[in-house]
Design a binder for these strands. Structure first.
Lengths: 209, 209
DNA sequence: TCGATTCTAGACAGAAGTGTCCAGAGGTTG
DNA sequence: CAACCTCTGGACACTTCTGTCTAGAATCGA
């Protein structure tokens, strides 16, 4: 009995439905039956387009790679007259959802936390992105070491990427975050506060609580 | 046959096992059978201590509330001689795992994304924390509006909290992030770059991509 | 129009989770 | 030592997933 009036679905339809489910509720909720009922179609139809659920998930990860990391790297490689313009190009990733899908990024990073193979692909993509950001700073005459620190701080802010994931030592972390704090209190920069932080950083680097 | 030599477990043992599973692999993986085998005990023993799985999860959320938000608020309310010292107190939350459990925070926020009642409790805790941070700034003579912005930017950095969760408008977001960018490029502050950003912010506020 | 190809529905099997029930082991107490 | 309370193991029922198989509807081309 052909009660349902809808036409046939495509492989892309399954991918789209899976993608929005991934973003809204996480990988664990990307279930064949759920997607099928949501699309008003039988569950077994799925297996015509995909070898298995794992096959579908692999497609989602590939779509993420082709979207977010690629976009941020492209923004980093855009020609720019000043470091201000360059950073603003990166800044657009946070501001423009079409350019960079933040909820998707969160969903994928969360997925990576509980799947080692996904984790590896995300880490590799992060390395490529960070390298592109560092290159952006060096092109504007920052020395390589400072460029890398700035790239990482920028990355934290852009993605809300937790420093713990980088497996830094306590000292590295304090140095980096102090770096940020020095900047944070200044608009307009108040010399006495900057000096205050510099003294704090000198006094506390190496201590452990 | 009593092959197993281990003694009885306690309610706290279940909570501890559930907590570390939550942190390592997410809520979805907090399963009664998994915890039981991990503790070398029968699954049905669980139901003597807890009414249901939901009861266990509620205990986990309560433990989070009593730990992380409470700790950051306590840090914010610590007496301080300068804003520098006050921010450094908050800064300790990122640096000292005993004070503030970042992986736990990530796990809970991820959980909140797919459970409305959890989301509500997390949002309420965030509001309390942000209020405490803003009060910290006002105590050091920042005007209320700037104090709130600084509290939120600080919060982004501390928790890697994505701005999207705050449901800001595009303009609010650009204003806040520009605020941050103004600070970011200065160590030591270079007046020409600051001016550059100020001009960019003036020119682009209100535009939409 | 007729046959081949493309896609879907429904039935089936099996794995993994939750929650219930109850016999009984193992301390504790009178 | 006997009764009692506390806790655990194992069996059972039920639900919700994944993946397979097969008949057959729908579509398209010759």
């Amino acid at each position: 009995m052909t009660v349902l009036a809808h036409t046939k679905v495509t492989r892309q339809d399954w991918l789209d439905a899976a993608m929005s489910t991934l973003i809204e509720t996480g990988v664990e909720q990307v279930k064949v039956l759920t997607l099928a009922t949501r699309m008003g179609v039988s569950r077994s139809s799925f297996y015509w387009y995909f070898k298995s659920r794992a096959d579908l998930l692999d497609g989602l990860l590939a779509a993420w790679e082709a979207h977010n990391p690629a976009a941020m790297i492209a923004q980093a490689e855009l020609p720019s007259q000043s470091i201000c313009e360059a950073i603003c190009n990166i800044h657009k990733c946070v501001v423009n959802p079409a350019l960079f899908d933040i909820p998707l990024d969160f969903a994928v990073r969360d997925w990576a936390r509980r799947d080692a193979s996904v984790k590896a692909r995300v880490t590799a993509a992060d390395a490529r992105t960070c390298a592109a950001l560092a290159a952006m700073f060096t092109h504007h005459d920052y020395d390589p070491q400072e460029a890398l620190i700035r790239a990482r701080v920028l990355y934290y802010m852009q993605l809300g990427y937790d420093a713990a994931e980088l497996n830094e030592s306590w000292e590295e972390r304090l140095a980096n975050v102090s770096h940020y704090l020095l900047a944070f209190t200044g608009r307009p920069p108040r010399p006495e506060v900057v000096a205050d932080f510099a003294a704090y950083a000198r006094a506390h680097t190496g201590e452990n609580s």
